[in-house]
Simulated scan of single mutants.
Amino acid sequence: MKKSSTKKDDLFHLIHKVPQGDSPYVKAKHAQLVEKNPEAAVVLFWKAINAGDKVDSALKDMAVVMKQLNRSEQAIEAIRSFRSRCSKQAQESLDNVLIDLYKKCGKVDDQIDLIKRKLRLIYQGEIFNGKPTKTARSHGKKFQVSVKQETSRLLGNLGWAYMQKSDYLTAEVVYRKAQMIDPDANKACNLGVCLIKQGRFDDARSVLGEVLQGRIPGSEDMRARNRARELLMELEPFQPPLEFSDIMGLDDHDFFNGLELLMNEWAPFRSKRLPIFEEISSFRDQLAC
């Protein structure tokens, strides 16, 4: 009977992804993941930190729960106040949580400063505690992240921060660098926005077109494709000027329409069509009969 009970306990902890025991940290995780009581979880995470119980995980988890409760400002202060109690290995994860919290609070300058500091650590070879990869977790699944991927991710965050400051030229430079290192469709869409904001519509069409044509990793993601499509639709009122070479080789009907559009661009202030187009239209109508 005791063995059966132990197996049930093991299965329970495996299903709910909570550690075993009755320490403050275990109770906090139980409140967070099983009871779905974030307020109680925060109180218990505080107790775990004060008791020195798994401080690395307790501080990070508490900050994440606080963010969910729209208490991001408090989460920032908690990390700043207690990260000195955490190990060196935990600092990188805490920085990543801080970046998200700064973004949530609109603390753009703090976000930029922290991302630049993390990029400087990459340059100095000090990221991932000197290892070429690290293990990350998303939606309960573990995967490996390379230094190259992390660099591109941070540059993407930096580009987004500059966009919030309406510094689209700097954001463009950062996004282009990120795409050179490890391209993806989401950053391509953000790059397209930067180009649109600068009035560089042809460049934006080119970048967004690569997403729809599946030339960039992540282009199969429907959210990225839909966003690229929406941005291209916004560009429709800003069609590029029709070049004379664009209308050569068309059939007669399209040729005359295209030629008229071109001439109207050359004479945009005319309220009436040039006489030659009246003659062409008349001649075209006769041919149609």
Rank of each mutant, 00 (worst) to 15 (best):
N186C: 06
L44C: 06
R200P: 00
E77I: 06
D113Y: 12
C289R: 03
W160G: 09
L195I: 08
D10P: 00
F82M: 07
L11H: 11
R273Y: 07
E278L: 05
I280M: 12
R176E: 14
L259Y: 10
M263G: 02
D202T: 13
D285N: 02
K3M: 10
S87P: 06
A224Q: 05
K141N: 00
V64E: 08
D113I: 14
D10S: 11
K17F: 07
I76D: 12
A178R: 00
L59T: 14
I196W: 00
Q89L: 14
V43M: 12
F269W: 10
R227C: 04
Q32E: 13
S219D: 01
E73N: 13
S219E: 01
G106S: 08
K107G: 06
M66H: 03
S138Q: 03
D221A: 03
V211F: 05
L44H: 04
I181Y: 04
P24R: 02
E279P: 00
M66W: 03
L155E: 10
H253Q: 08
L14H: 13
D9K: 10
K36C: 02
A51Y: 06
N190L: 10
G199V: 03
P241N: 05
L250P: 01
Q68C: 04
S166W: 07
E243G: 11
D251A: 09
F277V: 12
P275W: 08
I122G: 10
T133V: 14
K104G: 01
M233S: 07
K142A: 08
A40G: 01
K134R: 11
F128H: 09
F256S: 02
R71L: 15
D95L: 07
F128S: 03
Q149P: 01
L121A: 15
T151Y: 10
K8G: 07
R227K: 09
D182P: 00
N96W: 10
G156L: 07
S87H: 10
I181W: 04
F277A: 11
I247A: 12
D203C: 02
A28E: 04
N96M: 13
G159P: 02
Q144D: 05
L242I: 15
R200C: 05
N190T: 06
R284I: 09
K88A: 13
H30W: 08
M263V: 15
W160T: 14
E39M: 03
E172K: 08
S166A: 13
S146I: 06
T170S: 12
Y25H: 10
N70Q: 10
S72Y: 06
T6M: 07
L195F: 02
Q89K: 15
A204D: 03
M163E: 14
I280F: 09
L169P: 00
F128M: 08
L242G: 09
L94H: 03
Q111E: 15
K142C: 04
E35W: 00
W46T: 14
Q91H: 09
